[in-house]
Write a protein that binds this DNA or RNA. Structure first.
Lengths: 124, 124
DNA sequence: CCTTTGATGAGAACGATTATCATTTGCAAG
DNA sequence: CTTGCAAATGATAATCGTTCTCATCAAAGG
């Protein structure tokens, strides 16, 4: 069912539903939500909130950090830009931080979220 | 009206509404939302999403980065822990990254969001 | 006083997500 | 090939946070 993964990124549940219906005409929206919930729980899919009231989903095709990226979110037009330019240093720092935090707060860290907000080239 | 700020952190609009009614018995929920929207737009208040379906608000009492912190979010019980232990290095790196990203994508960055997800001491 | 303008509260409307429930499907035992 | 049962599915209702609408109210100024 990971066929939903072939699609591009930042899709909402409804987007995915529409795309899926081309291949599986009778599929219901509830099933899409149920499947996404499973995939998220199994760490196969990320669920993001970009502030526009609906969740966005993105596959984790994460072989050795490949494809790992963070987001730039435009506060005005809600456009989302993926970047992975500075990821290495970020991830390096994050791992140190994770270690420190894990110890201090006795917290098992499994994930992180980094997003930058601002105005994209078209909006500023 | 920043009296809402006296309260603790991570309050939802509804939490704030309830607290406010003790001092302003007739205040409506719509007004709370309207005011919060303004405060967020003017960068006096942060709006967070911790994944439980409602937005949380937090004052920015940010004199020279004081009180600035990031969050640990428990995936199981949704508890949120503030930390500012490793903030300095994080912020330092973020500023470099912001500069690089701003240039490459011609994006004016105004804010960032960092959150770690995992299991808190009680849940793991 | 009277008018205007903006803020307010009550409640309706909205939209994303979740729950419900009857139906269908898959599959294994008989 | 049936039968029976459990899990999955789709349609739709329900939920709930947030936003919209609109009548009312308050303050300001003529």
């Amino acid at each position: 069912m990971s066929i939903l993964s072939v699609a591009k990124e930042h899709l909402s549940a409804d987007d995915i539903h529409i795309k899926l219906r081309k291949d599986y005409p009778g599929i219901g929206l509830a099933t899409v939500y149920r499947t996404l919930e499973l995939l998220v729980k199994r760490n196969l899919v990320y669920k993001f909130d970009f502030g526009d009231g609906r969740a966005r989903y993105e596959i984790i095709s994460d072989e050795k950090g490949k494809n790992h990226h963070h987001h730039l979110v435009c506060k005005k037009c809600s456009r989302v830009i993926d970047y992975n330019d500075f990821i290495d240093k970020e991830v390096e720092l994050l791992q140190k931080t994770e270690k420190g935090l894990s110890q201090k707060y006795n917290f098992k860290i499994t994930d992180h979220l980094i997003q930058f907000y601002g105005l994209c080239d078209k909006c500023k």
